[in-house]
């Protein structure tokens, strides 16, 4: 599916593979646990889970440094984890607690950590791509080698902001990468209905930038395509578009009965195209990593998420004064 120039890419080291597996497993465990906990009614508001799409966040962010930036979507937990946000602080944020990553003022849909280059999940579909153009401009003007990556969905790819940003990044030749996570549904509306044209990646042609389609369940496919695009951006070669075809395991939001999906649609994907299973099979078959090493990560991640949930539930609520703080730097 890809037309990636693999000759210029290097293979990930064993340590990097183990780290990417840990990222994917952490996202899966985080989201699976939220699915369970949300049903108890203890989590305020609503959450959009990333389970099933882990290979994209992990495969892209594996190439990013701490001072690179990403902008995310309403389905942002995975991007946060992959960009290095503190998992326990994230959990507290989702529970609306004072010590949450955003002090309980952002919640799931606006979770962010600028110190980690995470410009925020975004409650506005298509909100992120313009911000990433700014990141690219900043890197270019200041003469750094930083890169900005905008994640957006198939739904977001129909927003004017997305298309305007592709053009702006192209005419300014910005170090930006646009990653479309095409999970087949904009909320409940099928991409088949909402989007015409061959592939969303083909829209890149119209803006004079490379565009590729990759299997979003395949960590290695994403890793290769993202590596090429991010390298090009860093070297001054301008922006790229990557469309990752993928599936989400849960509904648009928790509580979505997903009656718009085919019977067994998710079960089949889970069985045949699960990104973690595919990754594990590939690295163990190739003799790169022992099964036991992956299992050890699984165990550690489970313990981490257990602790995160426990601590989040016990964490203090924000105080009344927190309502009024941090509107401005000074006023």
């Amino acid at each position: 599916m890809t037309t990636v120039d693999t000759a210029r890419l290097r293979e990930p080291s064993k340590e990097e593979l183990l780290e990417s597996y840990r990222v994917m497993r952490t996202i899966r465990e985080f989201e699976d646990r939220l699915h369970v906990e949300f049903a108890t009614g203890e989590i305020p508001g609503f959450v959009h889970l990333y389970a099933g799409e882990e290979a994209i966040a992990a495969g892209v962010c594996a190439h990013l440094n701490e001072d690179d930036y990403i902008a995310s979507t309403h389905r942002g937990h995975g991007h946060c984890i992959a960009k290095g946000c503190d998992v326990k602080a994230m959990m507290k944020e989702i529970y609306g607690k004072k010590d949450g990553l955003c002090h309980g003022k952002g919640g799931s849909m606006h979770i962010a950590d600028l110190d980690k280059g995470m410009l925020g999940a975004n409650g506005i579909v298509g909100g992120g791509p313009p911000l990433v153009c700014g990141v690219g401009l900043s890197a270019k003007v200041r003469g750094t080698k930083q890169v900005g990556v905008a994640f957006t969905g198939d739904g977001g790819s129909n927003q004017g902001t997305f298309l305007e940003s592709l053009n702006l990044a192209a005419v300014w030749n910005l170090p930006c990468v646009f990653v479309v996570e095409n999970n087949g549904y904009a909320e409940s509306t099928s991409t088949n209905f909402s989007t015409r044209g061959i592939d969303i990646a083909k829209r890149a042609d119209g803006f004079g930038m490379p565009g590729v389609v990759v299997d979003g369940h395949d960590f290695f496919a994403v890793y290769e395509a993202a590596g090429e695009a991010i390298r090009r951006a860093r070297e001054g070669g301008g922006p790229s578009l990557i469309e990752c075809k993928v599936n989400r395991y849960y509904g648009h939001f928790e509580g979505d009965a997903q009656t718009y999906r085919a019977p067994n649609e998710v079960e089949n994907i889970r069985r045949e195209r699960d990104c973690l299973d595919m990754f594990a099979r590939r690295v163990t078959d190739a003799g790169l990593i022992e099964r036991s090493e992956l299992e050890q990560i699984d165990e550690e991640v489970r313990a981490l998420i257990d602790e995160a949930v426990e601590e989040a539930k016990a964490a203090p609520e924000p105080g009344q004064a927190d309502l009024l703080s941090d509107v401005y730097v000074s006023y």
């Binding site: 930036y69 410009l119 313009p130 153009c133 401009l137 200041r142 902001t161 940003s165």
Partner: peptide
């Protein structure tokens, strides 16, 4: 939308 948003993103990242 793109360039006003770019101003916001640039402001968060050093300009």
């Amino acid at each position: 939308s793109a360039f006003i948003g770019a101003a916001a993103g640039a402001a968060c990242s050093g300009l």
